[in-house]
Simulated assay, not measured.
Amino acid sequence: MSTLGIASIQLAGGKDNNIDLLETEFRSIAKRFPWVDMMVCGELAVHGASPKNAEPAGGPTEQRFRNIARETGKWLIPGSQFEARGDRIFNTSLVIDPQGEIVARYDKMFPFLPYEKDIASGVDPVVFDIPGAGRIGIAICYDMWFPEAMRTLAGMGAEVIILPTMTNTIDRDVELAIARANAAVNQCYFIDVNVAGEQGNGRSVFYGPGGELLHECGTEREVSAFEIDFEQVRRARERGWHGLGQVLKSFRDAPARFPLHESSEARQRAMSGLGELRMPDRQTVSQSDQADENSGK
C-alpha cells in the first residue's frame, strides 16, 4: 500500500467545549468515507485557546479520542490541546492508531509568542510510520514559519507533514504561501488544517510534493477527503518534480555549513540585536526609529 486516505475536518465550532461535535464529525466521516485511513482536525479545536482548559496526559479528552479511534478503526490526529505537566503547559498533538494506542505525542516547538504566552516550548521533532505506507511528520501552526523545523522533519524521512492550525488573523494568506513553499522545498505533501466558526478563518490547504495545490477549503465548516500517494513523494525526491530540482539530495550533498543553526547559543549570539520578544503596544518605538530620533531625522 502506497496510498493513504485522509479526511480533514475544518471544524466550525464554538470557542471551546467542542468534543461532542468533533466526535459526531469523526463518526460521520467513518461512515461516509470507509476508505479513509486517517482523520485530522485543527489546532486547539476541542477546548479552545485558553490554557485554563489544560488536562494532564491520559485525561478524559485523550481517553475519549482513543475510544473513537478504536471504534472507527481509523488513525486519529485530533488537532491539539493544552496538556498540563507539573507546573508547565504544552500545546500537544496526539497521534492515535486504529487500536486506540498513542503512537506519538508532539509538543509545539514554537508557541505563537508573544500571544500564546505561558505555554512551554517542545524540543523534539516527531515523525511516525504508517505500516506498509510511509512516514509522517507532525507540527502545529506557527511551527511552519520556521523552515529549519520543517526541513528537520523531511530529513527524518517525513513524506507528509500534517499541521493542525488555529488562525483567525489577516496573515492567513501569507500562511498559504508558506505551506506551499514547505511542500515544494521539502518535496512532501503538506496538510495544513485550520479551524473555522468562532475559532478561525478556515482556508485549510493541501499541497503535493511539487508545491501543487490539491485543494483549498472555504471559510466555513468543510470536510475534505482525499488520497495521498507516497510513491509520488519518492519519485519527486528521486527524479525531481517533473524532472527538475532534487532539492533534498542537493541539501544533503552540499559542503556548506550553517554556523547560525549549530546551536541555540549560536543563534542567540548572532541575533541578539533584535531585542526582546514582547507584545507590541502604541508606545513601542523600533530601534531604527529611535536611531532616527537620536540623529535628529
Rank of each mutant, 00 (worst) to 15 (best):
M1Q: 08
T3H: 09
L4I: 03
G5P: 05
G5F: 05
I6C: 02
I6H: 01
S8D: 02
I9C: 03
I9L: 11
N18Q: 06
L21H: 05
L21R: 11
F26T: 04
S28Q: 06
K31H: 03
F33R: 03
W35I: 02
V36N: 02
M38V: 03
G42F: 04
G42K: 05
L44F: 00
L44W: 00
V46K: 01
S50D: 15
N53E: 13
A54T: 00
P56Q: 09
P56T: 13
T61H: 01
R64C: 01
R64E: 01
R64L: 08
F65R: 04
R66G: 04
N67R: 14
I68Q: 05
T72L: 04
G73V: 09
K74S: 08
I77M: 09
G79K: 10
Q81V: 00
F82P: 01
F82K: 01
R85F: 06
R85N: 12
G86Q: 14
T92F: 05
S93T: 13
L94I: 03
L94T: 01
V95R: 10
V95W: 05
I96N: 09
D97N: 15
Q99Y: 10
G100N: 10
V103K: 12
D107E: 15
D107I: 02
L113R: 14
P114W: 09
Y115W: 15
Y115H: 11
D118K: 07
I119P: 04
V127L: 07
D129Y: 03
P131C: 01
G132L: 02
G137K: 10
I138T: 04
I140L: 14
I140F: 03
C141L: 08
D143Q: 10
F146G: 00
A149R: 15
M150R: 13
M150A: 15
G155F: 14
M156A: 06
A158K: 06
V160H: 04
I162N: 03
L163A: 14
P164S: 09
T165S: 15
T167Y: 09
D171Q: 11
I178L: 04
N182R: 15
A184T: 06
A184G: 04
A184F: 10
N186M: 09
C188E: 00
V193M: 07
V193A: 06
V205I: 07
P209S: 04
G211K: 05
G211R: 06
L214N: 01
E216H: 02
T219I: 10
T219Y: 04
S224H: 08
F226K: 02
E227Y: 07
F230C: 07
V233M: 08
R237V: 06
E238G: 03
E238Q: 13
E238H: 10
R239N: 08
G240H: 07
W241P: 05
H242C: 12
Q246P: 00
Q246V: 09
V247A: 09
V247M: 09
K249C: 00
D253W: 03
A256K: 08
A256L: 11
P259K: 13
H261M: 14
E262T: 12
E262Y: 10
E262A: 14
S263W: 11
S263P: 07
A266W: 02
A270Y: 05
M271L: 15
E276N: 00
R278N: 00
M279A: 11
P280I: 00
R282K: 12
R282N: 10
Q283V: 00
S286E: 14
Q287G: 15
S288P: 00
Q290L: 15
A291G: 11
A291L: 15
A291D: 15
D292N: 13
E293I: 14
E293H: 07
S295W: 14
S295K: 10
G296C: 12
